[in-house]
Amino acid sequence: MSSDLMHPAALLIAVAADALLGEPGWLYRRLPHPVVAIGSVIAWADRRFNRASDTDARRRRGGIMVAAGLVASAFGLGWVLQAALLALPWGPLWLGLVMSTLIAQRSLYAHVADVASALELSGIEGGRIAVARIVGRDPDRLDEAGVSRAAVESLAENFSDGIVAPIFWGLLLGLPGMLAYKALNTADSMIGHKTPRHLAFGWASARADDWANLPASRLSALLLVLAALLQRGADAVSAWRAVRRDARRHKSPNAGWPEAAMAGALGLAVAGPRTYHGRLVPDPWMNDGGRWQLNAADIRAGLSLYWRACLILAILVVICVGVD
């Protein structure tokens, strides 16, 4: 299955390294994380090419050029790095370790588990502080159920775009594909907002990110359905039904798939009406009819389902290595 771009063995090393080591703090206190470095480039491009005096048409053209330039540059850099690393002794090992920086299995688990721990140890105030680190909605307006739903939603959505998507593109296109995807995904998170400043400029990044995440979001839903077969108390049939019924109702073309799958598997209702920056967003429920009064125990159940889905994904990568 390998080619000049695809290196499943290196990707398997990346998946294992991220699961075991996560993001080593000692390293990133000395070197910028790749996503932080990408973010610095995007912030510069936003200042340089998104002027308040520009017309919407000019902003949109600038945003298209920035998105295309980011993806092309990241892909080219990934190609050069991959070739250089594979030329070294134990090349797949070094390539795998670099790839692992673009996957977020362990860090996502830690951030979401922090919300559950904060609720358990410090109550609602602690939960609000912890969840504010991973979601964009107004934490002061959230009760315990709202904090818990936000954590479960973030876990499901980021399973797709933080783990499944980079691994998917890594299997297809190696490090170049992973780095290009991360550049696009970071651009969407920074400039893909429907605000007066970024509605036109971030349009290309947002639309391209939707397309880049489309296969991974469907795959992530399937992985969560399969994971429900392995978890006591989870319901794979309900997860599948929730995906079929509710996933396409979500405002995002991708987020509804893993959110509906996780909610259906655990008998929960997530998404729904919520407040961003003081504005009520009347979104539909994922797994409408499920229990919406969530608590820390539900976050823990979501984390258990998440790790089982990650394990199934790792097995799929092992199969790809075996085919190779």
Rank of each mutant, 00 (worst) to 15 (best):
L230I: 01
I191G: 03
S189N: 06
L226N: 06
K194L: 13
D246E: 04
L175R: 02
A234I: 03
M178K: 08
A187L: 12
A212Y: 13
L173M: 15
K194H: 15
R232T: 06
R244D: 10
L230M: 09
G177D: 01
K194M: 09
G177A: 02
P215G: 00
R241E: 12
A200S: 15
A228P: 11
W211L: 15
A200T: 11
A187W: 14
L179F: 13
K194W: 08
Q231E: 14
R244M: 11
R232D: 05
A227E: 01
Y181N: 02
D188R: 08
L173K: 09
T195E: 08
L230G: 12
T186N: 08
P176I: 00
A221N: 06
W211Y: 15
W240D: 01
L172D: 04
A247D: 09
R197N: 13
L226M: 12
T195A: 07
A236K: 04
I191E: 01
L226C: 09
L219D: 00
L226G: 05
P196R: 00
A216N: 07
V243W: 03
G202T: 02
A239N: 05
T195P: 09
R197H: 13
G202I: 03
R245L: 04
A187P: 12
H193N: 14
A242Y: 00
A234W: 14
R248F: 02
L219F: 14
A227H: 10
G177P: 07
L222I: 01
P176G: 02
V225S: 02
Q231S: 11
V225R: 13
A204V: 13
L230D: 03
N185G: 04
S205T: 09
W211T: 04
S205Y: 12
L179E: 03
N213V: 01
V243P: 10
G233K: 12
A216Q: 05
A242V: 03
A227V: 03
S217Q: 04
L229P: 00
R197W: 10
